Amino acid sequence: MEFRQAATAEASKSYDTEKLRKEYLVESLFVPGELKLVYSHVDRYIIGGVVPTNAAVALEVDLKLIGANSFLERREIGIVNIGGAGTVTADGVDYAMDAKDCLYIGRGTQAVSFASADASNPARYYLISAPAHMTYPTVKAALSEATPQHLGSIANSNERTIYKYIHADGIQSCQLVLGMTLLKPGNMWNTMPSHTHERRSEVYLYFDMPEDGVVFHMMGEPTETRHLVVRNEQAVISPSWSIHSGVGTSNYTFIWAMAGENQSFSDMDMIPMKALR
């Protein structure tokens, strides 16, 4: 498991491209037959990916690294399948996972494993975990069961639908909030006008992008913006002080996950366009 320390806004102002990518971009999460994990000191996220092929892959880590007797002893986890069909097994219960299905697993679950229905078209599970203080039930939701919110317009190149899976009025959790945003064809911008939320951090996973496509992910303080060039199935860690917007070379999809002080989706500090620099 890779570890990332939390960087300050002041320090980030002086980063060159390589340093900015090292601190905030997670480039390789999905490796066939492996479980990949990144531990961020930003709100203690564990970000992961797993691509099971011929055999199931267990959610296992050196427990000394997290100071626990099992991965979910004091954590909760959200899982989204962005690949072929598969199954997630949690304490002996199987959950069939099609593309864009979400599964929340609560604190205290002892054993979790991931499998694919077809090794030639494997499932690709994106994982996001946060500390938890109590236990909520394990719940699965398909995209059709998520709460939709339509935003933007074709005139502003940001017509999109936000699907909320784990939130105050959906799947219950301790602090994790998770959803998926799908941009319609011909639309490239997300989360612009931009915002920050000092009370919560956020992680984005961009996917459904062509091989030669990129997203220019905008980050940094509103008056000290920077950008990261992000490719398919790469994730960005967004601290609470940073904006988190993007524009792609074509439309794309991204999973957003938040943790921190509250679970209110609308708790945002909007940044006027004229204030951005």
Results as ranks from 00 to 15, higher is better:
M180G: 00
I154N: 15
I162C: 06
S157D: 14
A168S: 13
S153A: 15
N187Y: 05
P185G: 01
Y204R: 06
V203W: 05
Y165P: 10
P239V: 04
P185M: 10
Q234T: 03
M218K: 03
D208L: 10
L183F: 04
K184C: 08
E221Q: 13
M180C: 10
V215K: 06
N190V: 03
L228I: 09
N232Y: 06
F216T: 01
S153R: 09
Y163R: 04
G152S: 08
P239M: 03
K164W: 02
A259T: 02
R199P: 10
N232G: 09
G220Q: 11
H217P: 15
T196M: 13
P239I: 03
A257E: 13
G220Y: 02
M258I: 01
M192I: 03
V236R: 08
E202G: 09
W256I: 01
H217F: 08
G220T: 06
A257W: 05
P239G: 07
R200S: 12
A168G: 06
N251Q: 15
Q172M: 09
Y165E: 09
H217C: 08
M218Y: 08
G152T: 08
D208N: 15
G170Q: 09
F254K: 07
V214M: 14
G213D: 15
S250R: 12
E233Y: 00
R200M: 14
S194F: 01
Y163F: 14
E233H: 05
I237S: 05
